[in-house]
Amino acid sequence: MEWIITGIDELEDSARKLLKKAGDHRIMAFSGEIGAGKTSLIQRICQQLGVEEKVTSPTFALANVYATANGDEVYHLDLYRLKDAQEALDMGIEEYLYGDRYCFIEWPAVIEDLLPADTLYIRIELIENSHRKIVLL
């Protein structure tokens, strides 16, 4: 399914929609070019899950871990800096992928072969006039 949003204030609604669609799925992979809004969308999803602290870009840290209101952990990964799957394994990617926690991954291409079968793939496309198309594959 796919839909179009016309501004950043509609991200919250998209986050709600994605979580509802996700059901029991815990791993979500987000693709889209720089500036598409991957981190912004994940921020809104984390808010929906009750994360109160600041959700910031994990590009440098590779992985951010947040706590929800009821103490569950949420993982936010960004593999932008990684060159290949071996580097992902070296950083301990399995810990994040095979826990029972929500795990949101930006720039997932390098670990395509490692992602669990029930991973949800979300693509954000930049279209004209600051509009975005959000595609749930």
Partner: peptide
Amino acid sequence: GQTIDDAAGEAFDK
């Protein structure tokens, strides 16, 4: 105060 999204270094890199 702190960043609410990207870090300054990341703004350079991206």
